[in-house]
Simulated assay, not measured.
Amino acid sequence: MPDLRTVLATASGRVRLPAQAGGALAIVAGVVLVLLDVDAVGSALTGAGVVLLVVALVGTFLGPAVHAEPLLLAPPVEGRWEALNSPTSKVPSHGTHAYGQAYAIDLIAAPEGVPRPRFGEAGGSFLPPDRFPAFGRPVLAPADAVVVRAVDRMRDHRSRSSWAAYGLFFLEAIPREALGPTGVLGNHVVLRLADGTHFVLAHLQAGSVAVRRGERVVVGQPLARCGNTGNTTEPHLHCQRQDTASVFTATGLPWTVRGGLPANGAVLATQAEAGASTEP
């Protein structure tokens, strides 16, 4: 039987983003009604909207995380990748529980001897994605699974590699979030794992998704290529485990690989370095 913390985390995940969307709509409708001199109803709607937004904010930033044994999976990439926003360093790893991101990790390709444009030192604010070593690299299935969602309709955009470009990135996040999960995740694949939980691989390269909904995949199978779609500043792979297929109502769940998920700035252990087979 799940403990109280898990129950609260799951409930928070279910209501967080619906409350945010409902609150925003209620406030807009309430303001319109007040302007039309329907004051009583308008004020009530506005007040209800504010309450919903407070609920959403509390759930997003202060909600509990699920404490459970992490599920062992295979790395979803090959080669040398560094961690950013790792759950090994903090939970929630991205500073928010929204979209099931409590235990998400961002992986950035860092092959030996291959330069990567660094933020603020890249020689430009908006670089083409192929300037980054992660772009176009294979993304692999971390376990035997069933594809429950495969999105491949978003374009790859240029990087946001300076503080001025980073400011634009935050402004862009508003319309992207209004588009729903795809606006944030970009092209992505959601897998249903053997235990009934789900795994998301996001920001995939346009035109690279090689699987379709309902397809069975095996551990290590290429699913797509790393891209720069959705809410990103540079090409990287965002991956996370969650309870439901939809990130809109998902609660993040812990996961790991042999050797452990690296902390921020550390390198993900390859299968050979971890002394593991390709089986999760």
Rank of each mutant, 00 (worst) to 15 (best):
T244S: 08
F126P: 08
H97V: 08
G63E: 12
V257F: 02
P254A: 15
P235H: 12
K90S: 11
R116N: 14
R153G: 07
G259I: 02
P92F: 01
T256Q: 08
A178F: 05
T88G: 11
I105M: 09
A40M: 12
F61I: 05
P235V: 10
V66K: 09
L45K: 14
H198S: 13
V58H: 05
L171E: 04
A110M: 10
L53G: 04
V151F: 04
A202W: 10
R213L: 01
V139Y: 03
L45P: 13
L204F: 10
A173E: 06
A210W: 00
L237G: 06
A206G: 11
D37M: 13
T244R: 12
V15Y: 10
A224I: 01
V190P: 07
R160I: 02
R131H: 04
V41S: 05
S161F: 02
V146W: 04
Y103V: 11
H94G: 13
S43P: 00
A272C: 04
A9E: 06
P115D: 10
P133S: 13
A40N: 07
V28I: 15
G123P: 06
T96P: 04
R116T: 15
V267N: 00
D152P: 07
Q101C: 15
E177P: 00
R118H: 14
Q221S: 05
V50P: 08
L127A: 03
N85A: 09
L72W: 05
W163L: 09
R160D: 03
